[in-house]
């Protein structure tokens, strides 16, 4: 259990992007689009949430794709094929509500493309027309393009530096699609909080229902601690059990972004220790 079957390095330079295929038959079987796991790399490790970006019931495996932004993801990235993840629990969160909406736009920013993937696939399988907008800083770090092409009727790409697709942000592309008169029934946005906030700003005036998948700080992931709480429509919600997806127009993104910055100083200390190679995996 929890054994890493395959490792893929999508982008080697810091912050590196890596993907694992992990043996976990029970989670693979239960997993639905939109759900995530919480893992720990070592016995003194932190619990961190990562979305299940793909799964294979026959092999009993799940995929996780992550960017090495801090101590835990860096320690995780050092594991290799054959290693075991210390603790792995899931599937957590509510699955995405899948039905036939009509035309759905799936927006994935940065590594947010990975969590969007199973949702796009499920929406497609339910008869929706799926148009995906994938955004990356630069061409080299664009992930999951092939998979997204398979699960979408159409894929549009934007890069911040113009090395691939449209030169600009995912929101530029989305705005243009809306302005062109395309009828959009649902938008799903996953990426950095600021991106999700901006996507919601774009869709709000047109009353296009928009799901945002929130990536708050979490501890247990079972509704026990409240670390993951956000304000949605004026009410406090726990992202780990009530989410991770919410009606993006109701989410207080500013509060959420402030809460994500709670441990910046400590994260820096931990990252430096990790860079000196004295942390994590034993």
């Amino acid at each position: 259990m929890n054994e890493i079957r395959e490792k893929k390095v999508w982008w080697p330079d810091p912050p590196a992007i890596k993907e694992f295929v992990v043996k976990s038959p029970w989670i693979a079987e239960k997993h639905r689009a939109g759900q995530f796991v919480i893992l720990r790399v070592s016995d003194n490790g932190e619990r961190i949430p990562l979305t299940i970006s793909d799964s294979n019931i026959e092999d009993g495996t799940i995929n996780i794709l992550f960017q090495e932004v801090g101590a835990t993801t860096m320690a995780l990235g050092r594991l290799n094929e054959g290693d075991k993840i210390n603790d792995l629990t899931g599937p957590l969160g509510r699955p995405t509500h899948i039905e036939k909406y009509g035309t759905v736009v799936c927006v994935g920013g940065g590594i947010g493309v990975a969590p969007v993937h199973p949702i796009a696939r499920a929406l497609k399988a339910s008869g929706n027309r799926v148009i995906s907008i994938l955004g990356a800083r630069t061409r080299g770090i664009l992930i999951y393009e092939d998979l997204m092409r398979k699960t979408s009727d159409e894929v549009r790409i934007t890069t911040d530096d113009g090395t691939y697709g449209r030169h600009g942000f995912v929101t530029d592309e989305l705005k243009e699609m809306i302005k062109s008169g395309m009828k959009i029934d649902l938008v799903v946005a996953i990426g950095p909080p600021i991106m999700m906030k901006m996507v919601c700003k774009v869709t709000e005036p047109y009353k296009i229902f928009t799901y945002a998948s929130l990536n708050t700080i979490m501890v247990d992931g079972t509704g026990m601690c409240g670390a993951c709480r956000v304000t949605v429509g004026g009410k406090t919600k726990f992202v780990c059990v009530d989410g991770p997806e919410f009606d993006g127009h109701q989410v207080d993104f500013d509060e959420m972004m402030a809460r994500l910055r709670q441990y910046v100083e400590e994260e820096k200390i931990a990252r430096e220790i990790c860079q000196k190679n004295t942390c994590g995996v034993k």
């Binding site: 490790g45 619990r47 501890v219 026990m224 931990a270």
Partner: peptide
């Protein structure tokens, strides 16, 4: 939970802050 289960009072020896 941070302090007991995750041993955050021993940060950074333990990763949880």
């Amino acid at each position: 939970t941070r302090s007991n289960l995750m041993k955050a009072y021993q940060f950074p020896e333990y990763d949880t802050p």
